[in-house]
């Protein structure tokens, strides 16, 4: 598992940790039932404050990616396919939005963009 933190990113550090753990969970690199490092250990390893890792874990718990057992620590939840799909969909939307913004910047029309998308989609098949 890798967690790389950027201090110059606009994203909060806890969000960066959240996103990267989420990615590891969605890609099955972290498997269901696997235990996560303690918040204090992770804070030490990443050289960030405890409150930062605490918040990242709380968010992961809220969104159902992990669960915690008092005195034992945090573990990766069983991922239901619906949730995985939804998370991926959100990722796709974000990437498409970036592509749309970039297109608008240089004046590419919707039709042209659709054409491009169609070509690339078919090439991958």
């Amino acid at each position: 598992m890798q967690i790389i933190i950027s201090n110059s990113s606009k994203q909060h550090i806890y969000e960066q940790i959240y996103e990267q753990l989420k990615t590891s969970i969605l890609s099955n690199e972290l498997e269901a039932g696997q235990s996560l490092p303690s918040m204090r250990q992770l804070a030490k390893d990443l050289n960030v404050s405890l409150i930062t890792t605490k918040r990242a874990y709380e968010e992961l718990e809220k969104t159902g990616f992990i669960y915690s057992i008092v005195g034992k620590g945090s573990f990766v939840s069983e991922q239901n396919s619906e949730m995985v799909k939804e998370a991926k969909m959100k990722g796709i939307e974000e990437q498409l939005l970036t592509a749309i913004r970039n297109s608008k910047d240089i004046g590419i029309s919707l039709t042209e963009l659709k054409e491009l998308l169609t070509i690339l989609y078919r090439e991958e098949e």
Binding site: K44, N47, V48, S49, L50
Partner: peptide
């Protein structure tokens, strides 16, 4: 800061420190 992180592994400890070197705080302070 690493030593302080190490100390904090034991959840019962509390650290209170004054400083005007604020960059130190990003890495450790809650």
């Amino acid at each position: 800061l690493e030593i302080l992180h190490q100390l904090m592994q034991d959840g019962d400890k509390t650290i209170f420190f004054s400083t005007h070197i604020t960059t130190d705080l990003d890495m450790i302070a809650d």
